[in-house]
Amino acid sequence: MKVLVSVKRVVDYNVRIQIKPDGSGVVTDGVKHSMNPFDEIAMEEAVRLKEKGKVTEIIAVTLGGAKGEETLRTALAFGADRAIHVKEEGEIQPLTAARALAAIFKKEGAQILFTGKQAIDDDANQTAQMTAALLDLPQATFASKVELDGTKAQVTREIDAGLETLEVDLPAVISADLRLNEPRYLKLPDIMKAKKKTIEAVSFADLGVEAAASLKTIKTTPPPTRSKGVMVKTVDELVSALKAKGLV
């Protein structure tokens, strides 16, 4: 069984995000980047399934500029067999990403697309769902457990009320939540081996994909800073303060 895993290069989760002075976005120049942590989890799941003999080939896919290759090398060191780099500079909206992933999924004849549930840069949480829609395939998002059984997958997902278990027919799209697994530490021999694996570069044109322009970023601002707290002496005072703010 062939599976596709999408991996995105994002600003590292340890970096204190700064907004560009002109409000056009966040500062990414000279800032540490790494693989989106949810994508690492998706990658790990695919590798574990391969180790269990349920998956035969793992293809890692990224979309973005030249530096995306670093992220693909990481995916290859994790255990992907080969990688596809949709090499396009500039902004890539979720719908565009979904179109590209769908095109590759079809071309490769894959059975599962694993993605992180969202990327920690834009937190859009749309690509997996849109890809499933474009491919007209079942989707199981926010997975915290995945079991493969021939032509079906049992996926446990975290929902507000607890855990929900779905069964989807394959092929399908599965997005990984935080508790699905704990990604492994990379091993030096695997990093060396990754260098010998192939990365195929393709463009939107090669895939017959048109970049979507359905979203427009108007402005980026830092979250409001928390205003100073007020000490209240009595419960009555608290209640009237809450009322004054229109909170009760």
Binding site: S34, E70, A77, L186, L188, I191
Partner: peptide, 10 residues
């Protein structure tokens, strides 16, 4: 260099 960077990262 990429390998060195990956090694140090790991």
């Amino acid at each position: 260099r990429d390998t060195f960077e990956s090694v140090i990262e790991a």
